[in-house]
């Protein structure tokens, strides 16, 4: 199986006074293409820092990161932006939709950046909205959507360009149980239908349960890394 993400002896040290903070300490992991992986751990364990480094949003202090067959640690900001546009989708804890754009415009954002023609963009977004239960909400601004709906728009935005890898930072943290379950259904379905690799950071047991691989971090290091039985999408 191909490797979607590989980190080698990854360190992230924040230069703080009086002592530097070692957020990530010597982590080496390999994530296979099409996997559904949760990275768990308490606050401050380094989950978000790991996601940010893998997504090229912050640079490691030491070590290497490869996305697919591309080594990204030496890439320029512009090349990293292009890599994210073509290969990586992001889902954030607090949705982070652009408030001035409608649900549809938010979802088609990456397609627009990729220069996909309008008709094609609309077709793909509307199909996706239909699949994830957002039909009829296309013209609403984020402020007029519930938290669950906003997070589904965020997922639509992340997956609409068919990236190979989705990085989701605590995607269910602000959602109730029902919305969380619905969102996980959506993401599992996309994972199964498109073979998209998902890597979550979470401390939500429901997400941990439904991941196929659970990596637990403590104090910036891997405490455990285990495969688990995967529950199918709820009906």
């Amino acid at each position: 199986m191909k490797t979607a993400v590989r980190t080698t002896n990854l360190w992230k040290i924040y230069p703080q006074e009086p002592d530097p903070v070692e957020a990530v300490r010597d982590i080496s992991i390999k994530i296979e293409t099409g996997d559904f992986v949760a990275m768990a751990g308490p606050s401050g364990s380094g989950k978000t820092t790991m996601l940010n480094m893998i997504g090229g949003l912050t640079r490691p202090s030491q070590g290497q990161i490869s996305i697919g067959d591309q080594e990204i640690t030496e890439m320029t900001d512009k090349d990293l932006a292009q890599l994210r546009l073509e290969h990586i989708g992001f889902v954030f804890q607090s949705y982070n939709l652009l408030p001035v754009l409608t649900a549809l415009e938010n979802a088609e954002f990456t397609l627009l950046l990729s220069g996909i023609p309008k008709d094609e963009r609309r077709k793909r977004v509307l199909e996706l909205f239909n699949k994830i239960g957002l039909s009829g909400l296309e013209d609403r601004k984020p402020g007029k959507l519930s938290g669950g709906q906003q997070q589904r728009v965020a997922v639509a935005r992340a997956v609409v360009a068919n990236p190979a890898l989705i990085l989701a930072d605590e995607p269910t943290a602000n959602l109730d149980s029902k919305a969380s379950a619905d969102l996980l259904d959506v993401m599992e379905r996309l994972n199964q239908d498109h073979g998209t690799t998902f890597l979550f950071s979470t401390h939500d047991p429901r997400v941990m349960e439904r991941s196929r691989r659970l990596i637990t971090l403590v104090d910036g290091q891997i405490e455990s890394d285990k495969r688990q039985n995967h529950l199918s999408v709820s009906s």
Binding site: G55, L57, D77, K78, A81, Q82, R84, L85, E86, I88, F90, F92, N96, L98, P99, F109, T110, L113, S114, R157
Partner: peptide, 15 residues
């Protein structure tokens, strides 16, 4: 934060 999000989505700094 919004700038960070659009950067994360693949916008180059110049954008």
């Amino acid at each position: 934060r919004e700038f960070a999000v659009v950067r994360a989505l693949g916008t180059a700094p110049i954008g």
